[in-house]
């Protein structure tokens, strides 16, 4: 028994350790470490910008996505929901870079600046909200009709059914949407630099432009680590928030 637990642990830890080793080696080899130390204030500014981009767009996408997805499952929205789903699906098929470019091109037309943090946030948010809306809608829609009938027949109000039955049971599916959204945001955030949104993309693109691999790696490695950090946090919170009764697959955590 204990042997098996050790084995499991080793199986998880070895790849993680090797990845970190590889990244550190790369980081040191190209002098990214020295560059970062020399530019530590700028490094922190970029980190803060990067986190701001990711977290704000993420929080907005979750709030709006879950609300909209939930509203679409209400009887009164039956007609509108298929239209919204179509829009959401089309929207999600547009590549991230194109979304950024579209935001850059469109926002000035409605009197907003196309350059800076705001358009980057709007683009990230719009792109990330789609999978959350979609999964919230289908997650709630998939809750068994028998469960809803039992709840209604027992005298639960619509609101109680939504918060105590529908949302908790849809949570694994919603969480899937949030994971997809996080992957989109974390993957697109470095591109935000291209429309003046700041973040660690600054060093990556500067490195590319100057053909200086050190600067590029100094930006790329933190970006990769942030992605891993978010994935870890999400998996942890899924374990915490999703009832054991509806967890379908064991959520892998490191």
């Amino acid at each position: 028994m204990t042997l098996r637990i050790w084995f499991q642990l080793v199986k998880k830890l070895v790849p993680l350790f090797l990845t970190i080793l590889f990244i550190s080696w790369l980081y040191n080899y190209y002098g990214a470490w020295d560059y970062t130390i020399k530019n530590i204030p700028e490094f922190f500014r970029l980190i803060v910008e990067h986190f701001t981009l990711v977290i704000i767009s993420m929080v907005c996408a979750v709030l709006v996505g879950v609300t909209l997805g939930t509203m679409m499952t209400r009887k009164s929205m039956e007609n509108a929901s298929s239209t919204i789903m179509t829009v959401v699906n089309v929207w999600q098929s547009i590549p991230s870079l194109a979304v950024l470019a579209l935001a850059y091109g469109f926002l000035p037309l409605i009197g907003l600046s196309g350059i800076g943090m705001t358009p980057a946030l709007i683009a990230l948010f719009l792109h990330a909200v789609a999978p959350i809306v979609r999964n919230t809608y289908s997650g709630i829609d998939a809750v068994s009709k028998d469960v809803i009938e039992a709840a209604t027949g027992m005298g639960m109000t619509k609101r109680q059914i939504l918060f105590q039955i529908e949302l908790p049971n849809a949570l694994p599916v919603i969480a899937g949407g949030v994971r997809t959204a996080t992957a989109i945001i974390v993957g697109t955030a470095p591109l935000a630099f291209l429309i003046g949104g700041g973040g660690l993309g600054f060093w990556i693109f500067t490195g590319i432009d100057l053909v200086d691999t050190g600067i590029m790696i100094a930006g790329a490695v933190p970006v990769a680590l942030i992605a891993m950090l978010f994935d870890f946090c999400l998996a942890r919170s899924e374990k915490f928030f999703i009832s054991r009764g509806v967890q379908t697959i064991e959520v892998e955590t490191v």
Partner: peptide, 22 residues
């Protein structure tokens, strides 16, 4: 309606237990 239903036990064929609750 809500009070009425709370005063009547309701059992259906497909049971409809709430999967998220113990």
């Amino acid at each position: 309606t809500i009070e009425l239903r709370r005063s009547i036990g309701y059992v259906i064929q497909n049971i409809g237990l709430f999967p998220n609750m113990t």
